[in-house]
């Protein structure tokens, strides 16, 4: 067992975790934050994307203990509790989801993409979201949602 001290969505947690526990399992099972999804479990689909110290990572491909001391943000932590985050709002407006399973990961990846790139073209967005797979294949509206959010967030 290892002692984990971590901040998730601004809240500090101290837990004993198994050395081989994945970050996604810690988030979902220990903290019961089930907005972060496990899709493929083989590091490909991106449904489990969270931010660790402001950087997007696949939480199924990181040990919980690797995030010791880190600030983690999950999909539950991006709105202020009253209003949706502009990215969430844009997914809503543009119908950027069908079944919604990939959405938390898409939103987390897209927030980083918009935060680190100016003047995103459609191609930039498609390439920037390469690590997120939507099996409803609803990419068209996802790209529109990210464009809409980028316009709002970068205004």
């Amino acid at each position: 067992m290892a002692q984990l001290s971590i901040s998730v969505n601004g809240q500090r947690h101290e837990n004993d975790v198994a050395d081989n526990m994945l970050l996604v399992d810690y988030i979902r099972e220990t903290l019961a934050l089930t907005g972060t999804h496990i899709g493929c479990d083989t590091s490909q689909c991106g449904a489990c994307v969270v931010h660790v110290n402001g950087v997007s990572v696949k939480s199924c491909t990181m040990l919980a203990i690797q995030a010791d001391g880190a600030e983690v943000t999950t999909i539950e932590g991006i709105s202020d509790g009253e209003n949706l985050h502009p990215m969430q709002e844009a997914f809503h407006e543009q119908h950027g989801l069908q079944c919604g399973y990939c959405t938390p990961g898409m939103v987390m990846s897209a927030i980083e993409l918009v935060a680190t790139n100016k003047d995103l073209s459609e191609q930039d967005i498609r390439e920037g979201l390469e690590g997120n797979i939507c099996r409803c294949t609803g990419y068209h509206n996802i790209v529109k949602a990210v464009q809409t959010a980028a316009n709002k967030m970068q205004r």
């Binding site: 991106g46 994307v49 950087v55 990572v57 990181m62 990846s109 980083e112 993409l113 690590g131």
Partner: peptide, 9 residues
């Protein structure tokens, strides 16, 4: 290489 999340790690 890979995708953005892979490149971050």
């Amino acid at each position: 290489i890979g995708d953005r999340q892979v490149r971050n790690c």
